[in-house]
Write a protein that binds this DNA or RNA. Structure first.
Lengths: 204, 204
DNA sequence: ACGAAACCCGAGTGTTTACTCTAGATTAGC
DNA sequence: GCTAATCTAGAGTAAACACTCGGGTTTCGT
C-alpha cells in the first residue's frame, strides 16, 4: 500500500538504465526481424546486434514472442499514424508514402511480419487482423467525410475504396522492396487518389 | 551417345512411381509452407504429412531450398496464368479472383512466401522479383491495348495502373486471409477495373 | 531373370534453437 | 552505507534443425 503501484511488497520496478537497454534491444530486433523474419531470426542474433548476452535480452523480454509483441508496439510508437485528416486526406497519405521511402527497414519489418502473420497461430496474427480492421474503418470514414462535402467521385463506394487504399499501399510496398528502382510508391498511391477524388488538393 | 540425354553412362532416370511421389511431397509442402512459412516449416513436417520418411523426401529433393523452388514451380503449373486476354481483361481478372477464393491454401502459400521473400538472401526472392516484373509488364501491356481501342479512361497511365492492379490484388488477398468475411476480394478488384475502364464488359 | 540403378528408411551427426540456472556486479530506497 | 532488488552474463539443457550414411527393397533395361 505504501508504494505507488499494485506491486507486491519488495518490488522496485525497472532501473533508469532499463528503458535505454530495452530501446537498444528493440532497435536490434527491428533490424533482425526485418531482414530475416520472425521465424528466420533468432534471439541470439538480436542479442549479438545489440551487443549484449542472450540471457540479458531474455531478462528484459522473457520470451521471443513477447519480444515480437514489443517490437510491433515499438513500431507503432515511432511511425506516426494518421488521425482525422479530413480534407487533407490525400495530402497526408501521399506525404506519408514519401516518408516511408526514408525508413526502408521499417517497411521491410512490416511486410515480412505481415506475410508471416497470415500463418495460423502466429503470435502477430491478432495484431495484423486488428490493424487492418482499424485501417479499413479509418480510411472508409475519411472517404465518407470527403463524399459528404462533394469531393468523392460519384459511384465510388467508401466501403470499398477504403480497403482498396490499404491493399494498394501494402501491395506497392512489397513490390518496392523487391524492385525499388522500378516502382513509384507515392506516385502510384497518388494516382489512385486522384482517380477517386474530385478537385484534388493542388500541389503544396 | 546411346541414351537420349546427356547423362553419363549408367544412369537410368526416375522410375514411373517417382512422379507421383514428387507430387505427393509437393502437395504436402504447399500445405506446410503455406500454413507455417518456409523458415517456420520443417522438412520433417512435410515428410510426416506426405506419410514418408524424412530421408525419402530428401532423396527426391536433396535440400530444403530445392524443395521450395519445386513448390513454386508446382504452384505455377496448377494455377493458370492469364495469357493475352485482350478485350476480356476485366472479365478474366474478376473471374480468377473468384476462383482464388476456392483455393485458399494456395493464396496462403503465395502470401506467406512473398512476404518472407523480401528478406535478403531468401531463396525465393529472385522468383518473386521476376514474377512481379513480368506481371507489371503484362498488365500494363493489356491496358495499353485497351487504351488503343479507346476502352481506357483518359488520364489513366497504363504504366501506373498495371502495377496498381498487381499491388491491389496482392494486398486484398492478404486482408482476405486475415478476415475472410470482411473483405470482398473480387468485388474490390472489379471496382477498380470499373473505375479505369470505359464501357466495361457487361455481366456474363 | 539378372544386375544395376532408383527408391526407401532407421540411425546418426553436428549445429542451432529458445530458454533455465546460478551467481557476481550494479543500482537505488532507506 | 546497508541491503535488497535489478541487471548482466557464463554455463548448461533438451529439443529441433537440415542433412549424411549404410543398407535393404523395388523397379526396369537388357
Amino acid at each position: 500500500m505504501s508504494t505507488k503501484t499494485t506491486a507486491s511488497r519488495g518490488t522496485r520496478g525497472p532501473y533508469a538504465k532499463s528503458a535505454a537497454r530495452r530501446r537498444e534491444i528493440l532497435e536490434a530486433a527491428v533490424s533482425i526481424f526485418g531482414s530475416k523474419g520472425y521465424s528466420g531470426g533468432s534471439i541470439q542474433e538480436v542479442a549479438d546486434r545489440a551487443g549484449i548476452a542472450q540471457t540479458t535480452l531474455l531478462h528484459h523480454f522473457p520470451t521471443k514472442e513477447q519480444l515480437l509483441v514489443a517490437v510491433l508496439e515499438y513500431r507503432d510508437e515511432i511511425s506516426p499514424n494518421t488521425p482525422g485528416t479530413r480534407e487533407h486526406f490525400a495530402e497526408v497519405v501521399a506525404e506519408q508514402a514519401e516518408n516511408n521511402e526514408g525508413v526502408p527497414h521499417l517497411i521491410e519489418l512490416y511486410s515480412v511480419l505481415c506475410g508471416e502473420a497470415t500463418t495460423r497461430d502466429h503470435p502477430a496474427r491478432e495484431y495484423f487482423v486488428k490493424r487492418f480492421q482499424r485501417l479499413r474503418a479509418e480510411y472508409s470514414n475519411e472517404l465518407r467525410y470527403l463524399a459528404s462535402i462533394g469531393r468523392l467521385r460519384p459511384g465510388v463506394d467508401p466501403a470499398i475504396a477504403g480497403p482498396t487504399i490499404v491493399a494498394l499501399w501494402d501491395g506497392i510496398q512489397t513490390q518496392w522492396l523487391l524492385s525499388p528502382e522500378q516502382v513509384d510508391m507515392p506516385g502510384t498511391l497518388k494516382a489512385y487518389l486522384d482517380l477517386i477524388l474530385i478537385n484534388p488538393d493542388s500541389l503544396v
